[in-house]
């Protein structure tokens, strides 16, 4: 398995990239401007593409180069373009009703990272993988997942929800590249396209929300309760 035969250089490179992706998710937590979120998300996707490519290189998985190129193309370029277009069309530049200030949400995010590290460490002990890159990969995967959920909980704009979901998916993708690089490439390809379909569906629904429900904030969606 790849994670057992990594040289020190490769390990440091993967760690650097994984942590970079994690830091970029904090950039999203720290800003209420939607465009900043999208740029951070794009940068995160490019980082993940770099992880894919370097794993393809060090682990000799040529199909990962294709995945890396598609990740950069779709997740890193096309999806952010779609979301930016949506932001411009809806004319919503920033999150107006966040539950917490950026500083508080960052502290919550940090707590979630510590929690993720603890879970991953326990898993690492159970699997006899302490001091392995796997623990870092698991930590990043769980952290991005929880931070994505945190963004969806703390923010009410529809676009923030879409971005939260995309961060969650990025986390899964990041973890799966390091942990299971040999996973059938077909599946990863399909998941990339599936994500694209989902974002388009979200885009259509957000526009319906604006025209038919008159709001794109989940705090305005209070008609159905009980």
């Amino acid at each position: 398995m790849l994670i057992f035969h990594l040289g020190p250089l490769a390990t440091s490179l993967f760690s650097l990239l994984a942590i970079l992706a994690l830091v970029l998710s904090f950039v999203m937590l720290a800003s209420h401007w939607l465009k900043n979120h999208v740029y951070a998300f794009a940068a995160e996707s490019w980082t993940i593409a770099a992880i894919s490519a370097s794993i393809g290189y060090y682990g000799h998985y040529p199909e990962l180069y294709v995945i890396a190129a598609l990740t950069a193309l779709f997740r890193g370029t096309f999806l952010p373009y779609l979301v930016i277009r949506l932001v411009n069309r809806l004319d919503i530049q920033r999150e107006f009703t966040p539950l917490l200030k950026p500083s508080s949400s960052m502290i919550l995010g940090a707590a979630l990272v510590i929690f993720s590290y603890e879970v991953s460490r326990q898993l690492g002990i159970a699997l006899h993988l302490t001091d392995n890159i796997a623990v870092l990969a698991l930590t990043c995967m769980f952290s991005l997942k929880l931070i994505g959920f945190l963004m969806m909980i703390l923010r009410s704009e529809a676009i923030s929800h879409i971005l939260g979901l995309l961060v969650i998916e990025n986390g899964i993708f990041l973890g799966s590249q390091i942990l299971v690089p040999g996973m059938p490439a077909l599946l990863e390809l399909v998941i990339i396209f599936d994500l694209l379909t989902i974002v388009m569906a979200f885009g259509m629904l957000v526009r319906f929300l604006q025209t038919h429900a008159g709001t794109t904030s989940s705090r305005g969606l209070q008609k159905l309760v009980g």
């Binding site: 529809a158 629904l205 957000v206 319906f208 929300l209 038919h212 429900a213 008159g214 969606l221 008609k223 159905l224």
Partner: peptide, 8 residues
């Protein structure tokens, strides 16, 4: 409005 809200 309700239908779109539910779908979303």
């Amino acid at each position: 409005a309700e239908c779109i809200e539910a779908a979303w």
